[in-house]
Amino acid sequence: MSASQNLIKSSHLVSQGAEAASRLSFPCLQKYQCPKVYKAHLTPDSPPLLLKYRFQKQYRHPSLDVNLTRSRIAGEARALLKCLRSGVNVPGIRMVDATEGVLGIEWIEGQSVRKLLPGESEGDDEGEGEVGEEPTDEEKLDALKEYGVSIDQLMSLIGTEIAKMHLADVIHGDLTTSNMILRRPSSSSIPDIPTQTQLFLIDFGLSYTSSLIEDKAVDLYVLERAFSSTHPDSSLMFTGVLAAYQKKMGEKRWGVVKARLDDVRLRGRKRSMVG
């Protein structure tokens, strides 16, 4: 058995079952290509890792499978590094085993934004298995207080982080509130400096590099739709996200993205195929 297989055996699954519901969730819309997520340690003393395992698909020819897995891991790792270099808050890369399909990234201790915002419509968790009891809206607001930020501040953190990512020409491709984690203030990597609560963007599995206005506008549109479907009465919240995005991008860049976002809202994510 290979090294990475053993590593996975020694770690525990977080993306399925009750554990996942409390911390991380990768809503598997495309269930068939959803990677499994584990928490692991390389050595007993080293900091925890999040392993993202793209297991072998039996329905694919083995050599095609290896190639696809390899290029997806490479793509995700490159996007992460590009974000890191540009100062976007994303988890650092800790190990890569492209042959086995394992990507190990920094473990961010915290809570996904989806679990911190009020109003998660219940039907959303279909197929996610045994989801534990959902906290009520009041409990969520209390949890948010623990992080020392208000909803408005959270929205502005989100907008700023997305703007930083777009300025680096990285398109996330799957912006939702589940793919954002608010890190606990105490769990910073450098203990000497008191750091404020930080927002981390995760899951760059569908990301790509592009400088097109269209792609950035669609990225925002996808998030807007995610907001309105998971958090009712969220239009005000999303306005806060855009305000922070505008501030970080600068008036000139924002003007063009805004115009395109209005277009996209009228026609939807897909470009018209007519003509």
Partner: peptide
């Protein structure tokens, strides 16, 4: 200190992803 922790994070990540660079 934040400069150093930034450099450390980028450097560690670059080493980790070298095989798919």
């Amino acid at each position: 200190q934040s400069q150093r922790s930034f450099i450390d994070n980028v450097v560690v990540s670059s080493v980790a992803m070298k095989t798919v660079m």
